[in-house]
Amino acid sequence: MTRLHVDWTACQGRGHCTELLPELLAPDEWGYPRSTDDTKEPAVPVALLPHARRAVRHCPRLALHLVGP
């Protein structure tokens, strides 16, 4: 299963990913993404893969990554 990995050293909570992928990521009170299922690296359902790729592409800090098959 493909998972989403946040590079916290790069993330500055710009909020693009939480707008593009609200199914998996919601902003916390400081604007940083928090996985909606509270896992460290949320699994990406196949149906959401294109959206996840788009979020990865659009991260202004290049902090979002897809890992796994």
Binding site: R14, G15, H16, E19, L20, G31, H58, P60
Partner: peptide, 18 residues
Amino acid sequence: ANRAGRPAFGLPRFGVAQ
């Protein structure tokens, strides 16, 4: 404007970036 960290022009930030 988008670098300022809050939504601008009532658009979502990814929209402004797009």
